[in-house]
C-alpha cells in the first residue's frame, strides 16, 4: 500500500511579465488502488499539477509538498521520480526523432527495473502488450511518437504504463482524441494494469465517457488553481449537466 500526498502545492511559471502563479494550494491524497478523477475548465491548472508532480523544469514550486510514502518527491530529479513509481501519461506526448519505440521501451524498462529485461521474455512482453492495445507491431520500429496520430500517441502512453508498472499514474486527458473503440481499448489497458498491480490513478478528463470504463472512487473539481469540490462518481454527472459556472467566480 502506497500513498502519494500533495499538500498545499503552489506552482508558478515564468512568463514575459514575470512569474505567474498557477497552482494556488492543491491538497490531494492518493492511495494504491484508488482512482481519482480531476475535472475542471480549460486553463485551470490540471496539466500544471500533472507536470509539477513529474518534475517538468518549466514549473517553479513556490510552496507546499509532494511525498510518496513519505519520501520528498520535489527533491527528486525527473528520472528519480519515475523510478520511485510515478508515471505521467501526457496530454501531448513528445516526438523523439531517430529513437525507435523498441529502443526507448527497453531503455526505460531497464532504468525502472534496475536491470535489463531478459531478451527472450521481453520481446514477448512487448508484443503482447501492443496487441492488447491493438497497436500494429510496425510501431516498434518507428521513432517515438513521430508521425503518430493523436490516438496512436495515447495508446503508446498506455503501452508504457503497462510495461513500466508504476505505483501511481497520472493520466492527463488520455481520453482526448480517442475514437469510441480506442477509448474502450485504452480504458481496458488501464484497468488491466490496475487489476494486476493495485495502481493508484489520477485521471484528468473533460468527459464523463471515460469514467464509464474507468470507475472513479472520487471526483475532484479543479478551478483556478485549486480543488474546489470533492465527491463521489455522481459529482461527474452533475458537472456534465451544469458545467463549471458555479465554481468560476469571475
Amino acid at each position: 500500500m502506497s500513498t502519494l500526498e500533495i499538500k498545499n502545492l503552489q506552482v508558478s511559471v515564468a512568463t514575459e511579465e514575470g512569474f505567474k502563479e498557477i497552482l494556488k494550494g492543491v491538497d490531494l491524497t492518493l492511495k494504491s488502488g484508488e482512482t481519482h478523477a480531476i475535472m475542471g475548465p480549460n486553463g485551470s491548472g490540471k496539466s500544471t499539477l500533472a507536470y509539477s508532480i513529474a518534475g517538468h523544469p518549466k514549473y517553479t514550486i513556490t510552496g507546499g509538498s509532494v511525498t510518496l510514502d513519505g519520501a520528498d518527491v520535489l527533491e527528486m530529479t525527473v528520472d528519480e521520480r519515475a523510478r520511485a513509481g510515478l508515471f505521467l501519461a501526457m496530454q501531448y506526448p513528445v516526438e523523439v526523432p531517430g529513437v525507435s519505440v523498441t529502443n526507448f521501451l527497453r531503455t526505460a524498462a531497464t532504468a525502472i527495473r534496475g536491470e535489463a529485461p531478459k531478451v527472450r521474455t521481453w520481446v514477448g512482453e512487448v508484443k503482447e502488450a501492443m496487441s492488447a492495445l491493438s497497436m500494429d507491431p510496425a510501431f516498434a520500429e518507428r521513432s517515438v511518437n513521430e508521425g503518430f496520430s493523436g490516438g496512436e500517441k495515447k495508446r503508446h502512453e498506455i503501452l508504457q504504463l503497462e510495461l513500466l508498472k508504476p505505483k501511481f499514474a497520472i493520466l492527463d486527458e488520455t481520453d482526448s482524441g480517442l475514437d469510441v473503440d480506442a477509448l474502450k481499448i485504452v480504458s481496458e489497458g488501464v484497468n488491466r494494469v490496475k487489476g494486476n498491480s493495485d495502481l493508484g490513478i489520477m485521471l484528468i478528463t473533460h468527459y464523463t465517457r471515460i469514467l464509464r470504463y474507468i470507475k472513479p472512487d472520487f471526483v475532484h473539481v479543479f478551478a483556478a488553481g485549486r480543488i474546489v469540490e470533492e465527491g463521489g462518481p455522481e459529482l461527474a454527472d452533475k458537472l456534465e449537466e451544469n458545467g463549471y459556472a458555479e465554481y468560476v467566480t469571475n
Partner: peptide
Amino acid sequence: QLFYLESRGIPAEIARRLVIRGF
C-alpha cells in the same frame, strides 16, 4: 524530448545520448 525520456525513468545522461544518437 529530454523531459519525456527522463519521465520514463531514463537518467539524464542516457536520455541525452539517446536524443543525440537519434539525431
